[in-house]
Design a binder for these strands. Sequence first.
DNA 1: TAGACGTGGTA
DNA 2: TTACCAAGTCT
Length: 367
Amino acid sequence: MNLSEKNIKKFNENLLAWYDENKKPLPWRETTNAYNIWISEIMSQQTQVETVMPYYERFMKKYPDVATLAVANDAELLKLWEGLGYYSRARNLKLAAQQIMTEFEGIFPSVLTDILSLKGVGPYTAAAIASISFGLAEPAIDGNLMRVTSRLFELTNDISKSGSRKIFDQHLRKLISADRPGDFNQALMDLGSKVCTPKIAKCEVCPIRVYCEAYAHGTPLNFPVKTKKLKQKDLYFVAVALQNSLGEYYLEKRPATGLLADMWTFPLSVLTENEFGQIITDGAVSKLPDLPDLPDLPETISKTEYIGNFTHIFSHQKWHIAIMRAVPEEKFEVAENFLSADKMWLTDLSAIPLAGPQVKMFEILKK
DNA sequence: TAGACGTGGTA
DNA sequence: TTACCAAGTCT
């Protein structure tokens, strides 16, 4: 593209006029309040907007401002986030709210480096908030902007490498509208999701095609350049469903770090692929997870019954879970509900945060 | 810098 | 069913 001042001005006029006509109506586009924009941007990371919308509405109702979020109950916050994935986002949201209370006197920071200092806020989100809420000319570089920009300039930099970011940043800084930087960013995002899409480039309806190198050369689908993702690793587990006489299930809390941190789970034990195969073919199980040492629990769980199996796919792991129902020799009562901070009998499913594998297990056990 | 970190949708 | 995609960040 010829980057003359006149062309850049025309580029923005075309892009922003298209945006004014075609922008997606989204709840968080009805305001520029930094708190609202922040929450919507965090929720939208690697997540489609259709999925985000109900979560956003519930979140704003329960935590309408920074002060409320800063003192949120951890379990309630995680429960609200249940099903959205990437649960550290919820944890970081509360930490960042506390940062704003202590380091910025409760006022959402308006300086880029201050916004960037918030937990869970990286270069994309900081630029999105800075441009949309504070009118700063910062390109918010997400997957959409990288795809559109790579086609505009036929950039062959691998977008899956973090080092490529600065190349896209350099190009976009020359283009970004000083008057409407927030709309510039959102226009390119909408363009990327509706017109300049990964598998199909609808160049015939693109408002900026006359500036596009890939369009001129008929090569839009050659961009962006991106290395392939690794395949998920297969992992095998046996999960145990143990019920007391009240019908409550025994659950454990996962560690505070790592995959599904702080979420509740049925006791799990790692299996080899062969051991897993044994269970699903003839119900034979060689090793069960350790069960709690309870005073009221019968001394031996003499029998286990194979219930079924399912798989759950994460971005980097594929879990194969066989479900065994533990059958105590006699019925037993439990004196206490909460055994400790990380062991409990489930009384109210709606009160504790459960991730995908556990939700699926409940579905199967209900049948 | 590469890999960890969830989930749901599409082809 | 596999592969990839969707408004990334942290370590």
